[in-house]
């Protein structure tokens, strides 16, 4: 069974009499355990698509199934974990208590909770910060806490909206490597929104390239780089080939001027 089936989904927003078509007839299937990135210029509807899958909003037309259930049922069943662009930790809860929150809300017993939290802080390498508060952590650390929180209930699907968007390049690459490792451990399917082409290529099994106004899927690019992805990969020919393929799909034609990249709000770091 596939993790996510998006079939012919459109979404428009009414903004002061005018309607903005954020998504137009988008179809996408994500297999269980698959890592799929969404990339495209600002405003092409990446976040909107993610929010529809998370049922934080509902589509104007079309249908969305998550593990064969309606998006609503999937949300009620906690079939997914979500990570937003900002970490969104509750400032009055300690790191451990933040990670624990979904477990607390869903009536997991105290001992089971404590065990799971210990596992998770270990997984994201923050064991000695378990009793700290979010304000005492750096942005990258906070983002790791948010990821741990999203993984707390072992969801089969992880939705991530530019989780590393606010991080510096070095932290970002380290977080990407960690994410690859964590995904291998948890075997969750991931839908990952990003603006960075190398990031998308490094992480994904498939990269979905979108175009704006109205938001559509322009191309889907298979990245066959295998399951084991270390730092070395970033310097390999196959990696660069992936980057080039995504870039060309983004720009619609084989061209490679940095100026147009910047102009379209997509960086090619």
């Amino acid at each position: 069974m596939s993790a996510v089936d998006v079939i012919g989904v459109s979404k428009s927003f009414a903004v002061k009499k005018a309607t903005v078509v954020a998504l137009d007839d988008v179809s996408l299937t994500v297999k269980a355990g698959e890592f799929v990135s969404l990339i495209g210029p600002s405003g092409c509807g990446k976040s909107t698509l993610l929010r529809l899958i998370a049922e934080l909003d509902s589509p104007t037309s079309g249908s969305i199934a998550v593990f064969g259930k309606t998006a609503r049922q999937a949300r009620l069943d906690q079939s997914y974990g979500i990570v937003f662009q900002s970490a969104g930790l509750l400032p009055w809860r300690s790191i451990a208590a933040n990670i624990e929150l979904p477990l607390t809300l869903h009536g997991v017993s105290r001992t089971a909770r404590r065990e799971r939290v210990a596992e998770l802080v270990e997984l994201v390498g923050l064991t000695e910060f378990a009793s700290s508060y979010p304000e005492q952590l750096s942005g990258g650390m906070q983002q790791r806490v948010a990821i741990a929180r999203a993984l707390a209930e072992r969801p089969g699907l992880l939705l991530m909206d530019e989780p590393f968007g606010a991080l510096d390049e070095m932290t970002r690459e380290r977080m990407q490597a960690e994410l690859v490792r964590m995904c291998a451990e948890t075997a969750a399917a991931v839908i990952f929104v990003t603006h960075s082409i190398p990031e998308a290529v490094f992480l994904s099994d498939r990269v979905v390239v979108m175009s704006p106004r109205p938001g559509r899927i322009r191309a889907v690019i298979d990245i066959a780089l295998g399951d084991v992805r270390g730092e070395k990969l970033r310097e390999e020919e196959s990696f660069f080939a992936g980057v080039t393929a995504v870039r060309e799909a983004l720009h619609g034609a084989p061209e490679s001027t940095a100026a147009t990249n910047a102009a379209r709000g997509v960086d090619s770091r």
């Binding site: 934080l56 949300r75 906690q78 937003f84 969104g88 509750l90 929150l101 979904p102 607390t104 809300l105």
Partner: peptide, 26 residues
Amino acid sequence: PQVAHVELMRSYAAGWWTTLVYLRLP
């Protein structure tokens, strides 16, 4: 509370009272 926090609670399928106790009150 920020929109992100409210949506987080929604993603946890938390009802009005739960959101009140765990998010809005604090």
